[in-house]
Design a binder for these strands. Structure first.
Lengths: 336, 336
DNA sequence: TTGTAGGCGTTATCAC
DNA sequence: GTGATAACGCCTACAA
């Protein structure tokens, strides 16, 4: 393994000069530069990033902790984050937490151990009770959920308002018995809880009753669970004419489940999701949804993190960014 | 920032003892261990991974370079790879190359700079001509494509045979004029080229003519391109009764495009994809496809890489693994 | 069971 | 414009 010292010896200069050449510093005579470059090529020299990291106290890598990278929403997000990080010269290491609280804390811990310059944590398992564990001077941005009064920077989805708009959209299209398919409602701080309240508010404002039997809770927000939920709803004889699904992934399953029961969408039941995953536009029927502007969220998250990374120790004000959104009307909620 | 020295001082021991405690070495008296642990907690000590990496010559991180992480196929693969790597105590940094050759080489370069212990490269842009640039003693596994005679370990998709089986499946279901939707056919070494030959062979074996006008080439393997291609095919008056799409993503677009033209699937045209992306089972109609066993591919890729990492410098035989596959028959190719 | 010495490869500082 | 020196924080030998 060739080191900077080997190159220096070969080029008849000091290690420092080699370093200056590598890092493109001025004040290196062209002739010297040439000689050094030649030696580097000849010896096939490669910088040792680990050594540089130690010296600089930076790794140039940020961590991204998400439940599962193969869920379209997280894939979409990760793509945007990696691109945004690259614009700042940062790489992204992806950790999968499986939505398990312990794994989310483990990712946090790795980051604090300076494996990463900072961490973007798309948390599902942590709640207000964990606020203390998040209190850290290590750069950290929470993404997606709302942790009330948490002590960290936060990029939030427009959960309540987006859900409200989605439900409102169904109402505007004539739906009166609107079901909700969501995850466990364990509080108000996670996606399901927040979107549930948006749903409730929209119904109430429209003078529609909020009926618990129209809220279908599934364990995990997967396509399989969505399909199963739809099969039950459709056969329940509840006269459902609209379904708001907390995520597009669940909605995709719901569309499948309704097809299994021979229920026509949007004819008999209209369906809307949340996330605007790339697939949604191409489904048959194409899926109406709420687009939270992933690219903007990603850019903001990275910006916030970079701020912290570049001003270490500075007690900046805690910052929060709630993404704007828009309802994307497609075939699944088309007027009859 | 507390170092191991600070802890040592605070606990009244040497740095070495602290290190032993951290790494769970035996031969530390319980009382001493207690004292050290207490000091670590009190001072909020955290190991500096960069320093450890430098010392050990390992980073504990492998790189994964894929075109775009938000394409379902790569998401699925990344999820499996991250899980497989985690079983070996390795983390995964994801780089997006956008399928651009230069970016693929850049990822290679980063890895060689010991930013990563090794690299898994899902290459699209590199071909046989780049074999020399891949000749490296740094751990590297090429994933997905076939680089003929390349000098590196390789985990390959069952491209030719899988495509053959998919086409054969359409023939078995009664199709006689089978179209292919694929990427640019610039050679035999990329997905499209290989799957094209599988398609051709199946037709020939069945005594069916290979008609160039039934091969639709699209620039990028996206849903949008698939939809556009399907709209043309359906209107071309070519009497197409089956379509083999080189990837599920393209197939998803094709299904959409056919729906736009009012063509019934599988009634008028049958469609099959390749990859068995999670969404495929839930589409309406659900998509028949070729399942290349992502988890197995991922596990093998990581195994190969770990072998190289653990026996640095050893000139192991170049290894190749071609994943088995199976045709998954779903609604999109159901008998009439 | 614990401590001492030294170096992993790089770069900031400051002198020449 | 170039070089000597000294860290960055950790861990492997070896010594006690």
């Amino acid at each position: 393994m060739t080191t900077i010292q080997d190159v220096a010896r070969a080029a008849g200069v000091s290690a420092m000069t080699v370093s200056n050449v590598i890092n493109g510093h001025p004040n290196v005579r062209p002739a010297t530069r040439e000689r050094v470059m030649a030696a580097m090529t000849r010896l096939d020299y490669r910088v040792n990033v680990a050594a540089r990291n130690l010296r600089k106290g930076r790794t140039g890598t940020i961590g991204l902790a998400v439940p599962e990278i193969d869920r379209p929403y997280y894939g979409r997000l990760a793509a945007a984050l990696i691109a945004a990080a690259a614009r700042h010269g940062l790489r992204v290491a992806v950790e999968q937490t499986g939505a398990v609280r312990e794994n989310e804390l483990a990712a946090l811990s790795l980051s604090r151990n300076r494996l990463y310059d900072g961490l973007i944590l798309s948390t599902v398992g942590l709640g207000p009770a964990d606020a203390d564990r998040l209190r850290t001077d290590h750069p950290l941005v929470i993404l997606g959920e709302r942790i009330f009064g948490g002590p960290v920077d936060h990029v939030a989805m427009p959960n309540v308002d987006g859900a409200h708009a989605a439900t409102r959209h169904l109402i505007d299209r004539g739906c009166r018995r609107i079901a909700l398919v969501c995850g466990p409602l364990a509080g108000e701080t996670d996606v399901s809880g927040l979107r549930h309240s948006g749903y409730t508010r929209a119904l109430t404002e429209a003078g529609l009753p909020v009926q618990p039997d129209l809220v279908r809770t599934v364990d995990r927000l997967t396509m399989a669970a969505g399909a199963a939920a739809a099969r039950e709803l459709a056969f329940g004889g509840r006269g459902v004419d609209g379904v708001f699904c907390v995520t597009d992934t669940v909605a995709l399953g719901v569309l499948r489940g309704l097809a299994d029961c021979g229920v026509r969408v949007p004819g008999e039941v209209k369906v809307i999701g949340f996330d605007d995953v790339p697939e949604s536009a191409y489904l048959v029927p194409s899926l109406s949804t709420v687009d939270p502007d992933h690219d903007l969220m990603a850019a903001r998250a990275v910006d916030l993190l970079v701020q912290r990374i570049e001003r270490p120790g500075q007690a900046l004000e805690r910052q929060e960014f709630v993404s704007p959104f828009r309802v994307v009307a497609r075939e699944s909620t088309a007027a009859d």
